[in-house]
Design a protein around this nucleic acid. Structure first.
Length: 400
RNA sequence: UGACCUAUGGUGUAAUGGUAGCACUUCAGAUUUUGGUUCUGUCAGUCCAGGUUCGAAUCCUGGUAGGUCAA
């Protein structure tokens, strides 16, 4: 079996290659270059060149062939342009989810297959399993990584059965500490390399600066919304009921964001563009003088207004439910797809590393309503809600 | 134009005449393969000019600025 490993120069993909090699597979290393523009990036201009040389050293150490592929064009088109577009619309994208769907398990996968590989392996912390259905077809499952602290299944929430059929995750059953130890034991040059952070392949960026390449600065007002806005507000009362006591007729109301306007509060400052901010954000507002920090509770890119509230427990920060449009629902397990009218209890996370939350999901003809048992902080349009049954990731969708 | 009140880091506020402190913000680190969150650390101040006092943010005089009430 010939397996192409996406070797990034980090410790995880290095150990993935190591394990496959030790298992006796024919392994080839492939290093992707996806980004070479350092505009707006913080520290380290040409980080990828160093990563490449580490990856090359790892390949040499493991005695496997090393290939270099440049996917910058497709990355820019499928990931970076999507980012700009989403921010422009006032949503908060997740580039790394797209990077996996469009690059690692699409453009890169195809390149690998063209090089004669049967499978593609990555250093993600998640596990793949499969079983045969009654028709004798193989159905693939993604399970959370065994290391509870590193589970990266979330970033793979948009993969298809087709993509999964070609994927291998060699380190999903290991703890990070074990991966480090294996790397050290094998003498891999990446053993002590620091974990990567920030946008995958781009790195840590000063986001407002990065976005200013395409989005212009536009001064607008910051409006503080106070507690009294919520008293008597129908929405806030749902926060105190469990997910299993919701009436179907209330789903729309529960899952819709609060809507604010200038009369909802008081202008307390100015900002440089509503599209540079996201819900739940605390830093970068430049407004002091409050007893507690103020957080963004809503943005309006059309009117260019940012709404904020004081304190971690501000009601505007919490919502009981969310909605996913019919055309933005993705099932990793199409065989488990919900029919209109169906109701199921699952576990959901709305961001990477968030503990799974108890929910009840309602499928209607318009889309999917997710009602949480506990109100959730910072439900943000554009981000992905991902549903699980125990350890298995079943599907995902873009929050409206 | 008459009377009164107030003036402390970028912001909001503490300090019986005795080392100007806290919170927020900013910035920097740590955590995090998205945004964001969280944690730690840091910078920064007594409106101006005189006076009283061993010693003034504090008391006195004048100035400046803002506010309130009278008109």
């Amino acid at each position: 079996m010939k397996i192409a490993v996406g070797l990034s120069g980090g410790v995880d993909s290095s150990v993935a290659a190591l394990l496959l090699k030790e298992a006796g597979h024919e392994v080839i290393a492939m290093f992707m270059q996806n980004w070479n523009d350092t505009t707006g990036t913080l520290h380290g201009d040409c980080a990828w060149e160093e990563d490449k040389s580490v990856a090359e050293m790892v390949a040499k150490k493991l005695d496997i062939p090393f290939h270099f592929v440049d996917l910058s064009d497709v990355y820019r088109k499928k990931v970076v342009d999507y980012m700009f577009e989403e921010y422009k619309l006032g949503r908060t994208p997740n580039p790394d989810v797209l990077c996996n769907r469009e690059i690692k398990f699409d453009a890169f996968l195809k390149t690998a297959l063209n090089l004669g590989a049967d499978y593609v392996a990555t250093g993600h912390y998640c596990r793949k399993e499969s079983f045969l259905n009654e028709k004798g077809e193989e159905v693939f499952r993604i399970l959370a990584g065994t290391d509870p602290n590193k589970d990266q299944s979330y970033f793979l929430c948009q993969l298809t059965q087709e993509q999964l059929s070609k994927a291998i995750f060699p380190i999903g059953h290991l703890l990070k500490s074990e991966v480090r130890r294996l790397a050290a034991k094998a003498g891999l040059p990446s053993a002590d390399k620091k974990d990567s952070q920030g946008i995958c392949f781009v790195g840590k960026v000063d986001l407002p600066v990065f976005l200013q390449q395409k989005l212009s600065i536009k001064e607008g007002v910051v409006v503080e919304v106070f507690m009294d806005f919520y008293s008597g507000n129908a929405l806030s009362k749902y926060n105190f009921i469990g997910y299993d006591t919701v009436e179907l007729s209330l789903l729309d109301e529960i899952s819709a964001p609060y809507s604010y306007d200038l009369s909802s509060g008081r202008v307390i400052g100015m900002h440089q563009g509503a599209h540079f901010y996201t819900i739940g954000q605390r830093k970068g507002l430049n407004i002091g003088g409050h007893v507690e920090s103020i957080f963004v509770i809503s943005t309006d890119v059309d009117k260019n207004i940012i709404y904020v509230g004081e304190g971690q427990s501000h009601p505007g920060l919490y919502r009981k439910g969310l909605f996913i449009n019919e055309n933005e629902i993705h099932w990793i397990r199409p065989d488990l797809k919900m029919a209109t009218g169906e109701i199921r209890d699952y576990l959901v996370r709305i961001r990477y590393r968030q503990p799974l939350q108890k929910v009840r999901i309602y499928k209607t003809e318009n889309g999917l309503y997710i009602v949480f048992d506990e109100p959730q902080r910072g439900i943000t349009p554009g981000q992905f809600a991902v549903w699980y049954a125990d350890e298995e990731m079943l599907g995902s969708g873009v929050i409206s």
